[in-house]
Amino acid sequence: MFDSLIQFVRDFYRTSEFIPLHAPVFRGSERKFVVESIESTFVSSVGAFVERFEQQMVDYTGSPRAIATVNGTAALHVALQLAGVSSGDLVITQPLTFVATCNAIAYCGAEPVFVDVDRETLGLSPAALEAWLEEHAHVDGDGVCRLKDGSRVVRACLPMHTFGHPADLDGLLAICQRWSLALVEDAAESLGSLYKGRHTGTFGLLGILSFNGNKIITTGGGGMILAGEELGARAKHLTTTAKKPHPFEYVHDEIGYNYRLPNINAALGCAQMLQLDAFIDAKRALASRYAEFFSGSDIELIQEPVGCRSNYWLNAVVCEGREQRDALLKATNENGVMSRPIWQLMSHLPSFSHCRRGDLANSEWLEARVVNLPSSVPQEPLA
């Protein structure tokens, strides 16, 4: 099985060389736009490409505002602040995520609470969220969600759209409304993914995207805050050092952040956005081929939830158990085909091992079984 999988991947990418997990593809106007940025001399946080990239994202996602940042973690840090998260608060999230999700919570002086995921979506489970809230929290007379002993405010809910597969947003939104929680979407991995025809990252109070080198499009490093008009204006102010407009004076009216995406990075993103639809088509075609390859085997490809369109950022398979998972990882990596396990649960990491948690049975089950396989867009378009 493993030998045939290795050959399948090599045949798809048409190479006997090392195959990475997810490599960027630059075959459009990237060089041209970057040179334009250099020749304009505007290569830092002021320049035409930054605003152009933001407008492209507004047009693509349907979000009223899009604010470009240096990376997805910075975007999430500011989004959580704008959602009202402050020191001492609790933010409910999933343990099956990349560490940046929890780091952004910690940057606010808040603490994550880990609630289980659904196996079908790999995202935060509405049932597990409701169960934890019923057991541990209440909404007080001021409409604030607190622990039952009144000691801590539960401020927000932060689901992540894992590997580009949308979480159950209808279920999460309904619970957040009942419990007075701000919903902030970590859509770092899901550019191009749709939940019931609408783009991920646009359902909550705010959402964020990432354009790291391994994402479906890249700016080298970069992120985006998706928000309404009012919060979007606040996001831009905070991410540009809270500087007030003035012909010549340096006036900063609050503590802000130097989080604005540089123009030279945005130039790369503008070129990548012109190819996004083709990238998604190619990745979905690869997912279809993986599904056909694993059909009838004891390894199962994770596929998009019903009613959703996933960008299939990373193709993931579920093995029978840890022993098979480890054997798959060993065989592929020893033969020059990169694969990786899913992240260690955040609740297992030293930084977050003390945090509150619910029953994490699904997360632990997936942690022991999930492997990511090569998912790059081919460097040359498929015939």
Rank of each mutant, 00 (worst) to 15 (best):
P126L: 08
V184M: 04
L194D: 06
G213W: 11
W179N: 07
N103T: 12
R152P: 07
P159L: 03
S210T: 05
N214Y: 10
W132V: 10
D186G: 06
L183R: 03
S125Y: 09
A128V: 11
K215W: 00
S125Q: 09
D170T: 09
R146I: 13
L122A: 13
P112G: 08
D116S: 04
D186P: 03
L191R: 00
V117I: 14
E189T: 10
G220A: 06
D170W: 00
A106C: 08
P126R: 11
L183Q: 03
A137V: 03
L169A: 05
A128N: 11
H136D: 10
A174Q: 12
L169V: 12
E185S: 03
G141F: 04
G164D: 05
C145F: 09
T200Q: 04
I208Q: 15
A188T: 08
P112I: 11
I105Q: 10
C108Y: 05
D116Y: 04
C157F: 10
P166A: 00
N103L: 14
K196R: 14
L194P: 07
I105E: 02
A104H: 10
A182N: 11
D186I: 05
G171P: 02
T200P: 06
F163W: 13
G164I: 09
G164F: 06
P166N: 03
V139P: 09
H138S: 15
A156K: 05
L183K: 01
D149Q: 11
H199V: 06
F114R: 09
L124W: 01
A127S: 14
G204N: 11
L129F: 08
T219V: 08
K215M: 13
L183E: 01
W132I: 11
E135T: 15
